[in-house]
Amino acid sequence: MSVKARLIPVLLLKNGLLVRSEDFQTHQIIGNPYNEVARFNQWNVDELVYLDITREGEHDLRRDDLKHHNSTNFLDILENLSLKCFMPLTCGGRIRSIQDMRERFLRGADKVIVNTQAVRTPSILEKAASVFGRQAVVLGMDVKCVNGSEQVCIACGQEPTGLDPVQWAQNAEKLGAGEILLQRIERDGKGLGYDTDLIQKVTRAVNIPVIACSGVGQFTDYAAGIRAGASAVAAANIWHFKELSDRQGKRALHEAGINVRLPFSTDSRPKRRRQARPKRQSPPFDFKQETILA
């Protein structure tokens, strides 16, 4: 009995719509920002990361027929989706000040991710930790190989900073980050698995939890992230394109011998005795009986 490895879906919001991402550059539209959250909540997922990767312009759902009004900014979207989110909600993207963080906490965020601004003015981490507590401050760190060396990149991965990921992670921990969301830009959307060397390097260097992200293509990829030292494993695309992605991901982790919270164990209602139900003799496609039993 100890803390469980977490499995976290990452939703990417761009100009008001959810997108799938590759290389931090190519973005395909997936759908409206609320439905997935409601589905994940129903699935009882561990936690949710919601990143606003809008670079410019407004949020437009392009749909007037939905019951949600057209939300023109991220804060409205956040406020709406938090209503259906009974799991920790971590928000990132375009956070530039303590006020930006406060706005997000007020609308239902439980943690905030700072990435670009933390590099530009590192003291923001210090301030944030003193105001909101370090457990609520997540450092977003996107790593790419530039001129043969691994570097931290900011501004949606577009701007190399020359910072060494390990040193920056340690520095951010000292300043007040309580967690790190670690992404490997070249792996984004490729489905080739995590960059476990990078995860290992970073997790060994810090004593705060690290969420591994970028690269998951198979449910079996998750376990490598945990083995490399991550406290949580995250992914984006697989949650949109595979069936039962929470349950199957958890099962893969569980089968790899990793301590996870099984999606069906925490329900507060008395557990139904599944095994006790007698096997039916009738043909398998007897829909009527199926409905009655269900």
Binding site: K4, D46, R134, N207, P209, S268
Partner: peptide, 24 residues
């Protein structure tokens, strides 16, 4: 073990069917 203690963990209740843990 990292600090903060972050994530899902099992809670063992000392008493059952009373107070906040009723039904759990």
């Amino acid at each position: 073990l990292t600090i903060p203690h972050m994530g899902w963990n099992d809670v063992l209740f000392h008493e059952m069917e009373t107070g906040l843990s009723k039904g759990l």
